[in-house]
Design a protein around this nucleic acid. Structure first.
Lengths: 257, 257
DNA sequence: TAGCTAATGCGTATGACATACGCAGAGATG
DNA sequence: CATCTCTGCGTATGTCATACGCATTAGCTA
């Protein structure tokens, strides 16, 4: 609602960047932003993002609920900062690193984080990245894409593609895990339940392609697959193949003609 | 929590599929699921998904809040069905249609829906599609991918890629529109504000690739671009290029060897 | 050293909201 | 007519985010 600062960003975000010295006047602050964010992460790790409430986080810290609002102006800011905290610093990208392997590493590390903190994929995106670590990750990916020779607009478009893919894949995994936890069943059982549901709801005549997939036992397969990463790698490779097509085109145009 | 039905799906979902005849005994139902879902859509179209509450929807229909729970066992079900209602029936895919142009049409029509109901992109994905129209859309896309000669697992993986991309693109657009509405500024202003924020927070030495993009005025460009679809088409083409790579590989292997 | 004043932690209060529970009436079946 | 199921819905509960204001703290000034 109100532009709090010079950048137009919430004070807590600027604080996370290290701007905004604390004033000299009043009593010392009993907490720090980092402490609060860490407490939020602890709660989310333990009981999921749904259990993160202002009062729960305050309780975790042994302070009153309203005290948190001296550090964060809304819950959404807390959650955003929690997301920033768990991705951590971006992977280092060497200048001479192959763009594709760099992006693979980028995506894999991001995925690893998401597996460590499944709730992080549930955080609703409320705007472009403005938080320190997420901007650092952005920089890392852009370095790869720039090295690949893409134009700025293409870099941004490609980055979006990769990020969103990792995100959605992580969300999928986390939902599968949640369904397993809720039902107490194995991954295989949960997936085959889905197959059964679709089979009961749809006829093979009206839904031939769907039944083609169901009959192939795809969902069961995905459980038996040695590599849990198989789906992830497939999607990632598809996206990178797609990017490679224009990389090749751009390079050819720049070199050949 | 409880498996209500034979399929294990909530009663309202089965109802949406046309299963589950209404019982003969009690009073006639005053409402229908469709009516309720339409009322929800009306509210969301008018004031956004955030304004959809059980009481608000009930008010829209002139009934009491709790009455809705005779048709829907939780708000989440309502929202899921609202999402299903707005995507509507899937586009028809001719059997001899080129897989790629079929998917382009599929994605464009889905995007058109999302632009008509921006809130639909905000709906949290809580599991695989089980709702009638969304399964029909799934079928439509699978037909294209099957026609392309992909294996079932590849079909599913590719479908995921396209869906999630459309979804995230729609969400991005809707958030941009929301930011414009909130600030009263133009698209150009909102985007250049973001550029300014990043410029103030990051130094060109630490963030060379980022500044490369910022200096190119990418965000401003995207506002001046004649085609608002430009970003959408870029990402979509990238994904389809990526799919095409394995289509070609598969076809070559099947035909040549 | 005695204020002055900004900043702090936090108690209280408000207003949404989802939803459990149970009742009174409807209406088909026996 | 009696019964039993299903209806709409009033009431109540518990959770939450957050606005507001007060008492307290502690650096700065005189």
């Amino acid at each position: 609602m109100s532009e709090n600062t010079a950048t137009g960003l919430p004070a807590s975000i600027e604080l996370a960047w290290g701007f905004r010295e604390q004033p000299k006047k009043g009593p010392k602050r009993a907490l720090s932003l980092t402490e609060i964010v860490e407490a939020g992460v602890t709660v989310a790790d333990a009981d999921g993002l749904g259990s993160v409430s202002m009062s729960r986080v305050a309780q975790e810290l042994g302070v009153a609920t309203m005290s948190l609002y001296r550090y964060v102006s809304a819950k959404e800011e807390l959650v955003t900062l929690m997301g920033d905290a768990v991705i951590g610093p971006a992977p280092a990208i060497a200048d001479d690193e192959n763009w594709r392997s760099g992006l693979v590493r980028w995506a894999e590390e991001q995925m690893a984080v998401a597996r460590r903190h499944p709730w992080s994929a549930e955080i609703a995106i409320s705007g472009p990245p403005v938080t320190p670590n997420s901007v650092r990750w952005m920089e890392a990916a852009l370095r790869c894409l720039r090295a690949a020779g893409l134009a700025p607009g293409q870099q941004l478009g490609s980055l979006l593609l990769v990020t969103q893919f990792v995100r959605s894949q992580a969300l999928l995994e986390s939902q599968l895990a949640a369904a397993m936890r809720a039902s107490g069943d194995t991954e295989e059982t949960v997936l085959s339940a889905y197959t059964r549901q679709l089979s009961m709801l749809t006829g093979p005549e009206e839904f031939p392609a769907l039944h083609g997939v169901l009959d192939a036992g795809v969902f069961e397969m995905s459980a038996e697959g040695q590599e849990p990463d198989e789906d992830f790698r497939f999607g990632l490779d598809r996206i990178l193949d797609g990017i490679e097509v224009i990389v090749a085109r751009t390079t050819a145009a720049g070199t050949g003609t």
